[in-house]
């Protein structure tokens, strides 16, 4: 996944069972964003791998004032890349459980 300047990581161990999982997002390189992020804290949130889309969360982050609306795509892509990796890993490690 290309480096968007926004990092998204698991905020808990993933055992492949739960559909909702804790993620942590922070801006690693503010220069890559169009708008100025509100602060450079790490934002932790829960994401439902089955019911929600990265765009939902990105829009909520913008509504909550964390990011400028012009950065919706970058934030959504950063979350999407991490979610894809989590699902890919689950498929490989716990194929029968998926």
């Amino acid at each position: 996944a290309e480096d968007t300047g926004v990092r998204v990581e698991l905020a808990e161990e993933d055992h492949g069972r739960k559909s909702s999982i804790a993620l942590r997002l922070w801006v690693e390189d503010p220069k890559k964003l169009k708008g100025k992020p509100k602060d450079n804290g790490a934002i932790e949130f829960t994401f439902d791998l089955e019911k929600e889309t990265p765009d939902d969360v990105a829009q909520e982050m913008i509504d909550s004032g964390f990011f400028h609306e012009n950065d919706l795509k970058i934030v959504a892509k950063s979350i999407r890349d991490r979610v894809a990796l989590i699902l890919w890993r689950r498929e490989r490690i716990w194929p029968r459980m998926q």
Binding site: D29, G41, A42, V57
Partner: peptide, 27 residues
């Protein structure tokens, strides 16, 4: 504590905490 919590109208909670210095790229 240095944690702040923001709850979005759709109900999702965002918990903001400082990023460890080691995880921030050189500015």
């Amino acid at each position: 504590s240095s944690f702040t919590q923001v709850v979005h109208s759709a109900g999702r909670r965002f918990i903001v905490s400082p990023v460890p210095e080691s995880r921030l790229k050189e500015q």
